[in-house]
């Protein structure tokens, strides 16, 4: 008669942190007892939504084609400035292409790359993290040394190499960025799985006759999904910046397809006389990354207080 009451005597009936992912997001009122998490970040949510809508409906929203050149209208400043034309709200670049249209289409590429790279890199990281954490032993030791190696890996150099051998394009970009991402996912998820593996329900699943594969799929993965979603949001910013950097360096999407990184790259030579060509996509990147990070921070606090130390 001694081991009872290991649970803290704090507020009774504090709901479990383990509600379903979407339920705990939507069910704003029913969550964690005394909440000290920040309020819902509405401004970032609006900014993210606008950019996503821009990307999805680009052909409907863009006033011009993003690649058609009108050389006679080249390097026009934004409409509100002296010399600007009402037709080109955000001005034009050195080939007379409409910057607003390029920005709208560019959002498509940036978000598509983010989606694909996070699916590929995050997915690989999730699988490796779960296997490494659950199987343990030598498998874990080998996989984690691989993760250590991945952190020291010069991703940018590798991307340049890939661009030379495979040619430029979305495929190259996604592979290069996935290689940059997976290790971080794997490491955090493995830690989570190590803790989960100690929980009795995982041991009991074995007693009930579940195979290791089944335990990982039905008992482990659903319990690390919160963490996974938080990692995804926090990494969107990393991906967008990586895409911009690689495109800027010439290892990304080849011109004339617009991407935000490429737009900065093309405008950098004329930053003194036509600052808007480089600065406007720069501002777009900053706004998106900032919004995504603010949203990710909030999501993290909301879903998993343990991740706060990261």
């Amino acid at each position: 008669m001694a081991v009872a009451e290991q649970h803290p005597p704090a507020a009774p009936e504090i709901p479990e942190p383990h509600q379903s992912f979407w339920r705990s997001l939507l069910n704003v009122r029913s969550s964690a007892g005394v909440r000290r998490t920040a309020r819902v970040p509405w401004i970032p949510i609006v900014i993210i939504s606008v950019i996503v809508i821009m990307a999805v409906f680009a052909p409907l929203l863009a006033p011009y084609s993003p690649i058609d050149q009108t050389l006679r209208d080249k390097l026009l400043p934004p409409a509100w400035m002296e010399g600007g034309k009402d037709r080109y709200l955000l001005g034009t670049d050195q080939f007379g292409r409409d910057i607003l249209s390029r920005l709208i289409y560019g959002a498509r590429v940036s978000l598509l790359v983010a989606l694909l790279a996070l699916t590929a890199g995050g997915g690989v990281g999730l699988v490796i993290g779960v296997v490494s954490g659950y199987v343990g032993g030598k498998v874990d030791a080998v996989l984690m040394r691989l993760v250590d190696a991945a952190f020291t890996f010069p991703a940018i150099l590798f991307a340049l190499l890939l661009a030379v051998t495979m040619g430029q394009g979305i495929g190259t970009l996604v592979i290069a960025i996935s290689l940059l991402l997976w290790a971080g996912f794997a490491r955090v998820i493995r830690g989570e799985v190590l803790a989960l593996r100690q929980r009795d329900f995982v041991q009991l699943a074995r007693v009930r006759g579940c195979s290791s594969l089944r335990i990982m799929a039905t008992h482990i993965v659903p319990n690390v999904l919160n963490t996974f979603m938080v990692l995804v949001t926090l990494n969107i910013g990393v991906v967008i910046i990586a895409e911009a950097s690689l495109s800027f360096l010439g290892a990304g999407i080849p011109p004339p397809t617009p991407t935000w990184g490429l737009m900065i790259s093309e405008g950098r030579g004329r930053i003194a006389e036509a600052w808007w060509v480089a600065l406007i996509p720069g501002i777009a990147i900053t706004l998106l990354v900032l919004s995504v990070n603010l949203f990710g921070d909030w999501l993290r606090d909301r879903l998993d207080p343990r991740l706060r130390q990261l």
Partner: peptide, 11 residues
């Protein structure tokens, strides 16, 4: 008492 959003817990 505990003061929670959902109400007062008279512990």
């Amino acid at each position: 008492h505990f003061f929670l959003r959902r109400g007062v817990v008279k512990a």
